[in-house]
Every structure is written in structure tokens, then in C-alpha cells.
């Protein structure tokens, strides 16, 4: 690696001050599993950093907590190991636990953070579809104060987010899951671990009361959120497929119809991991499976 300067602030304000005083050319450093690799390989979407600001000691970015009233707070600095091991995440947000528990290896998960995954903004970032499906919001802090952005508006393009120079992602807020909600995330990869998603699909559904509709299969789709990874320049919601389901009975036919719509609305490219046609096919197959899984969990 070429030389750079290193700062290790101990509070969020101090980190923001360093970035403001030193100005352009700096880069926040969390787990380093994207940034250090990119710096070693010299493949960066921005100029090689003149200085890095380690986020490891910022208490504001650490850990996670949950309350029934406000939901889940995931610190940007929470590692995937911490998220995947968290009893409350596993219990209340299995969709998020499933995204967190497949990032790289044991070693990767011990270093890689939620914030780094989102800010690196790969179209295949594994925590993005689950958090998009959960309608999470991003809390951002910078030289001109704090702001909150729906995660849906956070990604701009491959490697690009709405973060302005000197801004930091502080935490992600996830609303509490309503009753009769179920969700799941899966990705397709040739290798189970240590691979990057060819396609990732997250489905979160909330069902109405099973009695009101009189459906033998139990209720109608009250709310459906579908998010796709690695099929567009950013992780995206599949809004047409969602709209197709809401208000309809939670039946296999309705699910198959929505999967066909998701297949059509995905805009994948062809690359080394798969052709556009293969990815599109996977979106259809996986959306159908994931919706069924989400419905099964919502009924539990």
C-alpha cells in the first residue's frame, strides 16, 4: 500500500472535525474488508486516500439495540458477526440475520460492518436487500449536522451513495415488525460461503387476520416488500411485484404472478458471475420461493 496518514478519533464529533479540518482526500475506515483490499489493489472509485479515519473507537457507531416501540437500531460499526449472533435479530428479524450470516467467512464477519457494506454500495451488498425490505432509514452525521434518509434513497449507483464528503453513516433504524410478519433473505452463489451474490432476494410480508377474508390459506397480503440484489446498479425494491400482491389472498397463484413480474422488472447485466438472462431467471425462481417462505414464517 502507498503511504497515507491515520487518525483514530474517539467520538463521532471528533471524527467529523478531522474530516472537516483535513478536507478532501480522506476516507473513513471501518472493518477494512473493502477499503484495504481496494487500496492494496489500487482499484478505487475515488482517489487513493491521503488519510484514513478509523471508526473503530466511535461509541456512537457501536452495537445494536431493540425496543418494541421504536424497533431495531443497528450501529454502522456493528460487525456482521455481532448482528448474526444477536438473539433479538435472529428472533425478530430473521431476514436481517440471514443477510448478515453469509458475508464471507468467520474472519470476514468478525471484521466487516453493516456501515461498510452499505457505504461501499456494491449492487450485491448482502445486508442491503434485507434492510430495504424492512424499510430501514439511515442516520447520517456531518459537518452541517444530522439528517435521516430512507435507505431506499441512500444508494445512487455502484459504489455511490448520497453521503456528501465528510459525512458518516451513524446507524440504521429498522421499524418494529407488525404482528403476522415474516421475512427471509437468500442469495444464489456457486459456493455457499466466500462468494458474491449472483442474485439476492429479500421478501417481507405482513398478512391480514386469517378469519376476515375467510381464506382457507389464511389471510391476505396486507403489506409486501421485495428487494433485489445484484440485478441493477444499486440494490432495489421490486415495486411492481409488491403492488401486485397487496390486498390479494396469500395464495400460491398470486405468488407465482408476482414472481413473474419481479422477473420482468429486474434490470440485470451480464458479467463473470452470470448472464443477464440467468439472473432474470433466478429472480423469478427465488422471488417465488422467498415469498412462500416469508408467508410460512408470517403464519407461525
Amino acid at each position: 500500500m502507498r503511504p497515507f496518514e491515520y487518525f483514530a478519533p474517539t467520538s463521532l464529533q471528533e471524527a467529523i472535525d478531522v474530516l472537516r479540518q483535513r478536507g478532501d482526500g480522506g476516507r473513513p475506515l471501518a472493518g477494512g474488508t473493502d477499503l484495504v483490499v481496494q487500496m492494496k489493489e489500487g482499484v478505487l472509485r475515488f482517489p487513493y486516500p491521503e488519510y484514513v479515519v478509523s471508526l473503530r473507537r466511535l461509541p456512537e457507531l457501536k452495537g445494536m439495540d431493540f425496543s418494541e416501540a421504536t424497533g431495531l437500531r443497528l450501529g454502522a460499526g456493528a460487525t456482521f458477526a455481532e448482528v448474526a449472533e444477536s438473539p433479538v435479530v435472529r428472533e425478530r428479524y430473521p431476514i436481517i440475520a440471514e443477510g448478515a450470516s453469509i458475508v464471507g467467512s468467520v474472519q470476514t464477519m468478525n471484521m466487516a460492518t453493516v456501515g461498510g457494506n452499505l457505504c461501499n454500495a456494491a449492487p450485491s451488498a448482502d445486508i442491503a436487500p434485507p434492510l430495504l425490505a424492512c424499510e430501514a432509514t439511515a442516520r447520517i452525521a456531518g459537518p452541517s449536522g444530522q439528517r435521516t434518509v430512507p435507505l431506499d434513497e441512500f444508494f445512487v449507483g455502484p459504489g455511490e451513495t448520497v453521503l456528501r464528503p465528510g459525512e458518516l453513516l451513524v446507524e440504521v433504524l429498522v421499524p418494529p415488525p407488525p404482528p403476522r410478519t415474516g421475512g427471509a433473505y437468500r442469495r444464489h452463489t456457486p459456493r455457499k460461503q466466500m462468494d458474491i451474490a449472483v442474485v439476492g432476494v429479500a421478501a417481507l410480508v405482513t398478512l391480514g387476520p386469517s378469519t376476515s377474508s375467510g381464506q382457507a390459506d389464511g389471510g391476505a397480503f396486507q403489506r409486501v416488500r421485495l428487494a433485489l440484489g445484484a440485478v441493477a446498479p444499486t440494490p432495489v425494491r421490486a415495486r411492481n411485484a409488491e403492488a401486485r400482491l397487496e390486498g390479494r389472498p396469500a395464495s400460491d397463484e398470486a405468488i407465482a404472478g408476482a414472481a413473474a413480474i419481479a422477473h420482468d422488472e429486474a434490470k440485470p447485466i451480464s458479467d463473470v458471475r452470470g448472464s443477464a438472462a440467468f439472473r432474470r431467471h433466478l429472480v423469478g425462481v427465488m422471488t417465488e420461493r422467498l415469498l412462500k417462505e416469508a408467508v410460512a414464517r408470517a403464519r407461525r
Binding site: 483514530a8 475506515l29 477494512g32 484495504v36 483490499v37 492494496k40 489493489e41 474472519q107 471484521m111
Partner: peptide
């Protein structure tokens, strides 16, 4: 040197990491 092979694995504060991706300062 890029986190893929694990030959550099060490335990840091009880956690297994790939030490090729961790700055010493961190």
C-alpha cells in the same frame, strides 16, 4: 493479502480475523 485465503488468520480480542486486512494501528 486480500482476505480470501485465511493463511494470515490471528485471534484479535477473541475474534478470528484475517490480519492482512487489519491495519496495525487499528
Amino acid at each position: 493479502g486480500t482476505g480470501d485465503c485465511g493463511a494470515c488468520s490471528m485471534i484479535v480480542d477473541g475474534r478470528l480475523v484475517t490480519s492482512c486486512l487489519m491495519l496495525a494501528a487499528q
